[in-house]
Amino acid sequence: MTGEVAISTDKLTKRFGDFVAANEITFDVKKGEIFGFLGANGAGKTTAMRMLCGLSIPSSGQATVAGFDVYRQTEEIKKNIGYMSQKFSLYEDLTVWENIRFFAGIYGVPRSEIAPRAKEKLRQLGLYHQRNQLVASLPLGWKQKLSFSVAVFHQPEIVFLDEPTGGVDPVTRRQFWDLIYEASDQGITIFVTTHYMDEAEYCHRISMMVDGYIKALDTPTALKQNYGAESMDEVFFELARGAQRKGD
């Protein structure tokens, strides 16, 4: 892990009318880090992530992602990141293989590299035999693994994962984190949101968002110490108890 910064935000804010979804959030993510972004439903995690991905223009504040400005260089950012949304959003009427090929293609992965790399990737995932199946027919856990592979296939600098393991069984979740570690070992910075506190422990550093604010930011060990808690669950309850916004 080097000291270089992959993501840097300074008082980044998003308002929707009177509602402040993300309020002056400030943090840095180092290159190669696995950065956990925690918070209750409606805390503003997805909003913050969408701003960093260049999908949503901030209302105020500053931020750079992979060295590019979130206001003016959204398309440059998009070249350097991968994104996996909360809702499964690959094409259900295309096969596993076609989805990988399509997204690799529009990210500009050279044609000659796509097939060998896709083969290797699918073998790794254990999805090689299902490569000609329509994505619609896959179970959710496999879909999520496929989404992740598509998000990192073009070897981005940073990958954003929005609740990647929601609704997935514990075994698959475990496997999913193996994939995340693997990507991290290759030097990809991981920015991940989650509800599962056991997963929070897998992150290098985590931030806790409550009602649009970042209430805490540190390593899991340091957070537990600061709040005198046994587990991340307790830390979360301690912080989220005062939340005004009720999740959905």
Partner: peptide, 13 residues
Amino acid sequence: EVGTIEQINVTPV
């Protein structure tokens, strides 16, 4: 509606 357009919008297309 399905959400696939977001996956496209986050690419440099």
